[in-house]
Write a protein that binds this DNA or RNA. Sequence first.
DNA 1: CACCTTGAGTTCTATAATGCAACTTAGTAT
DNA 2: ATACTAAGTTGCATTATAGAACTCAAGGTG
Lengths: 167, 167
Amino acid sequence: MERKKFNTSPCSIARSLDVLGDWWKPLILRECLYGNARFDSMQFWLGISRNILTRRLTELIDEGLLRKQAYQDKPVRYEYRLTEKGHDACQILLALMPFGERWFFEQGKHPIELRDRKTGERVVPMVVDANTGKPLDSRNLVPCPGPGFEAPHDIVKRRFVEFFESD
Amino acid sequence: MERKKFNTSPCSIARSLDVLGDWWKPLILRECLYGNARFDSMQFWLGISRNILTRRLTELIDEGLLRKQAYQDKPVRYEYRLTEKGHDACQILLALMPFGERWFFEQGKHPIELRDRKTGERVVPMVVDANTGKPLDSRNLVPCPGPGFEAPHDIVKRRFVEFFESD
DNA sequence: CACCTTGAGTTCTATAATGCAACTTAGTAT
DNA sequence: ATACTAAGTTGCATTATAGAACTCAAGGTG
């Protein structure tokens, strides 16, 4: 059966996952972010099958995260570059880093770190509240219907009753 | 063929994806975060197949993101709760939200928003640099070998030459 | 000129994962 | 005695994935 789609789900997380929710796509974006933008090179460093890489690249282009650009003619050769949307998606990669560093490597033994391109200063991604600048703890958060919430009332009620009754 | 594993990759992103990199696991975590912690209810709201849900839940438990807890005996019934690691993984869900809101919903028409459990204040996740508190733009970042980087020198060189030559 | 190499894909095949529906099991309610 | 609920299992048809081999166009080499 075909994979379930989330592109009509009333949830930002689900819709984002529809575009990014597999193992390869975020890693392909990582390679683009790292400046490794060509087919064979990506294939080598990722260890991905070539047919799968082809498919993922066209999906990422269709979804607007990458664009294909020729870097030479005769023979024409392409590289894949991040669009603005693609760069925005990299925020999610940045959020993956501290989680991975914390749980899968010894303290202070992370294999790769980020630096500012100009200053060379170390950069450590962290998720905060945009309004207060304070770190977020998911234990203190509750989901609420936003301005775009549309659903039959009984469903809403059922859903949010469930949200709030459980603690 | 069996899915490729990234759990030995020297990359925090790849290792994180090994645990979270599919469509369902982050959504299951979302349901737990939203307080929707029981099998049938999850299955209903997610629209996931029951056998897949079973498998994903046991994987999430094995990976230490969830724990199974009985909420009644006779008959014994369970709910799934986030561990500390699971709550930490929710940071990634938080990072998915602004991306989804920006690219898949009209401005100001997001269906769900987060509020502080105590104050009720709206909370908007954002990825910043932990040191400066400034927002991060992936265009200004370069990856560098970290303290835990271990690889034959020629590989390192090839890899990072590629990193820096581009652009 | 015949052959090799490079970059970027396609095609083919065996194995694994997914979605769907139906079935199980233990205890409770009518 | 039958129905219902929660939490799964089982079986089956359809897809997706990994891996390897093949294609194609252009340039370089002996």
